[in-house]
Every structure is written in C-alpha cells, then in structure tokens.
C-alpha cells in the first residue's frame, strides 16, 4: 500500500495519467470492498424499522447509539472478546509450535516409517472438518472439558496442514547450515531451536496469520462444545443474536462491528506481514 517514503512530486505527476484505467478499476474495487462495511456501520446506528425498509435506508434519521448498549445487555461481550483472544492465542502458539516440531522432524530426521506416518498426516487434511466434530466432542466430554475455555482451543492446537506447511519450509533450508552446526557439536534440539527455527520465521508468520484468521472467526466448534455464554467466543455470541423469525439487524451489526474492531487494529499494525503471509502460503482464510 502507501509507501512511507514520499514519492517525488515530478514522478507522481507523470504516474497518474499513465494508468487511468487501472486507477478507475482500483477505485471501483475499493468501493466494492468498503461498501458493505460502510453499510454495516450505518445499519448499526439505525432503528429496526429503518433497517428492514425497502428501498434500503443508508443514512439513519437519528443515530441509535442504544444498539451498542443493547449488545452489552444481551451478551457478556467483554468476557467473550477475552475468550476469543485467549482461544486465538492458544491455538496460534500451539499450532505454530507443534507444526514446527513435527514439520522439522519430517523434513530432516530419518526414522523408520517416516514416509508412511507423513502420508497418514496428509490424509487427515483430506477429511472435512465436520467429520471430526463428534469424535472431538466425545474426547472433550470424556476429559470432562465440556463448557470450558480449554475445550475451545485444545483440539485446535494441532494441525496436519500446519505440519505439512512447515515440513515444506524446512526442506527448502540449505542442508549445509545444519551440517555446520552438527560439526560444531550442536545436538538435534539445539539445531532446531537455535539454527533452523529462526530461519523458518517467514513460514511461522504465514502459518500464524492463517491460524489467527481462522480462529477468530471459528463458529461451529465453539457453538457445539460450549453452552454457557460466558465460555463462548464472540463469534458464537453474535450468532445467538439471530432469532428464529426476526433478527434485530442493527444490534447484530453493532455487535459485529465491535467484534471486528480488534481485527482491524491488528491488520493495520501487521499489514505488511499479513500480506506476505497470505501470499506465501497461497491459501486464503
């Protein structure tokens, strides 16, 4: 995006007329991307009547700040935001750590059945997530973890995909560095921790970014495994604002907006890393 270094004025003047079509397309793209978000913002300040009228209302007659307070009245919003944050941190740290350990082992350590074991790992990525729902639920139940914060993140701390990603990354790193470290007397854990892991930082960031995005939005698992609103992440809390027949859209939009604020802040701060992370992994969402 915008470079922090100011471009020279002369260059800028020459640049603009050269790509008018590109600029027009980019502006259109920006409107398409920002439009729904702005609509969400105005809906969150409308009355219910305004939100369901045809043609749609874009500018509310008077700003309904009560929608925001209604979110806090309906949900333990602060607690849920905290739960989401803790869940995201635990899943991200867990996945990055375990995927690096396993990925390094698969990439660089030779042991019997390594190829078969890796094949089994890969086969897990081919099973749709919903299939794991019942067995994972039963594991949580037998561990006595239903309706706890731990249940939210425990199964999400391990990832076959992450292991695959990190294995590919470690394989790319030059063998010579590892050999040099071994000659200097480093054992396998030292090689991993001191030498290889720092070099794998881009891969870790890519994986971390993906896990954060997935975890922040995860809905089905938290809804199934936990029932107490105080043990739920904010995604599940917002989902429960939808009624069977009628949904109070302004309140739902106000809640969604509040829930996405932290993500927006994170995005602005880590914009550069996020872009390279998603570009690196080649996978979105």
């Amino acid at each position: 995006m915008a470079d922090s270094a100011q471009p020279p004025v002369g260059r800028r003047r020459r640049y603009l007329p050269r790509h008018p079509v590109a600029h027009l397309l980019l502006c259109l793209g920006a409107v398409v991307m920002v439009g729904p978000f702005l609509w969400q913002l105005t809906t969150s300040l409308q009355t219910f009547g305004e939100s369901v009228s045809v043609p749609p209302t874009f500018v509310p007659r008077s700003l309904q700040w009560s929608n925001v307070t209604a979110v806090f009245a309906a949900l333990p919003f602060g607690q849920q935001l905290l739960n989401t944050t803790l869940m995201t941190i635990a899943r991200t740290v867990g996945q990055v750590l375990f995927s690096c350990l396993a990925g390094f082992a698969f990439a660089r350590m030779q042991f019997r059945g390594s190829a078969v074991l890796f094949g089994i790992f890969l086969s897990v990525t081919m099973v749709p997530y919903q299939v794991f729902l019942l067995p994972q639920y039963q594991i949580m139940q037998r561990l006595g973890l239903l309706n706890t914060l731990v249940a939210l993140f425990l199964p999400g701390m391990f990832s076959a995909f992450g292991t695959f990603l990190m294995r590919q990354f470690f394989r790319q790193l030059p063998m010579e560095i590892e050999e040099a470290a071994r000659i200097d007397g480093a054992n396998i854990l030292q090689i991993f921790w001191r030498i290889m892991l720092p070099m794998a930082a881009p891969g870790m960031i890519a994986l971390g970014v993906l896990v954060i995005i997935w975890s922040w939005n995860d809905l089905l698992w938290p809804l199934v495994v936990n029932s107490d609103p105080r043990q739920m992440p904010v995604s599940a809390g917002l989902a429960s604002l939808q009624g069977q027949y009628t949904t109070n859209f302004p309140v739902l939009m106000a809640g969604s907006l509040l829930a996405s604020l932290p993500v927006i802040v994170v995005f602005i701060v880590f914009q550069r890393h996020l872009m390279s992370g998603i570009a690196f992994s080649g996978v979105k969402g």
Partner: peptide, 10 residues
C-alpha cells in the same frame, strides 16, 4: 494431527 492429539490427551 490425530496422533499428536491422542498423545496429548493421554
């Protein structure tokens, strides 16, 4: 993933 998960639960 399954193996790791099972080991940890153990």
């Amino acid at each position: 993933m399954n193996t790791a998960r099972r080991l940890l639960s153990l």
